[in-house]
Simulated scan of single mutants.
Amino acid sequence: MNILVLGGTSFLGRAYVAEALRRGHRVTTFNRGRTGADQDGVEAVRGDRNSAADLERLVDGRRWDAVVDTSAQQPAAVALAARLLRPHADRYSFVSSIHAFTDWPARPVGEDSPTHPCPADTPPDQPSANALKAGCERALLEHFGAEQSLILNCGLLIGPYENIGRLPWWLERMAQGGRVVAPGNPDRTMQLIDARDFAAFGLDLLERGAGGRYVTTAPPGSTTMREWLTACVDATGGRAELVWVGDEALLAAEVMPWVELPLWSPDQPEWQAVWLADTARARAAGLNCRPIAESVRDTWAWIRQRGPRTEPYLQGTVPLGIAPEKERSLLEQAAS
């Protein structure tokens, strides 16, 4: 196949490119060249996906079997790309998010769940919001139609080259050793998918000419908070000791869910189904997810190769991770 990847140099886009090249596909990447290096073997085209002139230069004299879009956050960006790429590509695969569903994370979601009412023609440069992914989906469907569109509603991605930093933050904290606050119920189940498995599944679907929507994440119950954090301890040498602190104590200390202790969600109604997305359709279509310990080990190996990070990981504009003094206070309370 001849594949165009919009982006292609960081995390999920990088995983798509690596897997496509491994399978022998021809790959073109289109990006500004700012977030990472293109991999050997691709045709790299520089440009801004929000620029009609740059996109017109990209498509001039080129045609692809499929487009893979891992980077769009704004409906206007998808609408522009889809409109200009439609005469030059047979199919368009868009990586959406589980955030696009209205009911998530309070109630379980699946392919038929309602999405946020965000229109396809939403003006550009909107503030970050979950609803925007739903608008992106509608913009794609307007230009490529249902049969030529493949929408993958992504769950929580982990793995090497993660650029948000949820798993890297935990690994770097465990590597420091000592007593570490482990949040909430240790047996709370989670759904974490390695970016490499996500990319392999997405390419499987494109190779089969599949369209439609797939909720793409690990199956419910595939791991627990205890298994995940224990894997982090083991991968980093076993110098950390997990100290479990319950939801009530964390909320009383005003610990921000999801951010200060990445991926912790309290057992409250608004978070009740955060890890209960229905993945039956994707699994029936061949989605396979590697063991969580493998993803953790490989991510730690990448971090060690990359070297120390000098800037904080960010959830949007908010730094990830709990302040050391706040963690010490929680540990003292747990010991008393």
Results as ranks from 00 to 15, higher is better:
residue 293 A to I: 03
residue 164 I to S: 11
residue 286 G to T: 05
residue 304 R to C: 12
residue 147 E to K: 13
residue 78 V to T: 10
residue 300 W to K: 12
residue 54 D to A: 07
residue 13 G to Y: 00
residue 153 N to C: 13
residue 185 N to P: 03
residue 306 R to W: 11
residue 249 A to C: 01
residue 303 I to D: 09
residue 151 I to A: 12
residue 219 P to I: 08
residue 212 G to W: 01
residue 113 S to D: 02
residue 288 N to C: 15
residue 186 P to D: 04
residue 122 T to E: 13
residue 203 L to S: 01
residue 220 P to M: 04
residue 217 T to R: 12
residue 269 P to G: 04
residue 41 G to S: 08
residue 42 V to W: 13
residue 254 E to V: 02
residue 173 R to V: 03
residue 234 D to R: 14
residue 298 D to L: 14
residue 195 A to N: 07
residue 233 V to C: 12
residue 101 F to N: 06
residue 76 A to P: 05
residue 261 L to D: 04
residue 76 A to H: 09
residue 36 G to C: 06
residue 172 E to N: 11
residue 335 A to R: 09
residue 317 T to E: 14
residue 80 L to H: 04
residue 77 A to E: 14
residue 86 R to Y: 07
residue 16 Y to N: 07
residue 232 C to W: 00
residue 236 T to L: 11
residue 231 A to S: 12
residue 283 R to Q: 15
residue 292 I to D: 03
residue 129 A to M: 09
residue 150 L to D: 08
residue 259 V to C: 13
residue 68 V to N: 01
residue 224 T to W: 10
residue 6 L to F: 10
residue 20 A to N: 05
residue 97 S to W: 05
residue 232 C to F: 00
residue 80 L to G: 04
residue 96 S to M: 08
residue 268 Q to V: 01
residue 44 A to E: 15
residue 12 L to E: 00
residue 153 N to M: 09
residue 42 V to S: 12
residue 130 N to K: 15
residue 49 R to P: 07
residue 327 E to C: 10
residue 195 A to V: 08
residue 218 A to V: 05
residue 163 N to G: 06
residue 130 N to W: 14
residue 277 A to T: 07
residue 125 D to C: 02
residue 178 G to F: 04
residue 165 G to Y: 03
residue 245 V to P: 08
residue 22 R to T: 02
residue 111 E to R: 09
residue 220 P to G: 08
residue 143 H to E: 13
residue 186 P to T: 07
residue 257 P to A: 06
residue 265 S to N: 11
residue 260 E to F: 09
residue 108 P to G: 01
residue 227 E to S: 11
residue 325 E to S: 15
residue 90 D to G: 14
residue 113 S to E: 00
residue 101 F to C: 02
residue 108 P to C: 01
residue 264 W to E: 01
residue 335 A to K: 06
residue 157 L to T: 13
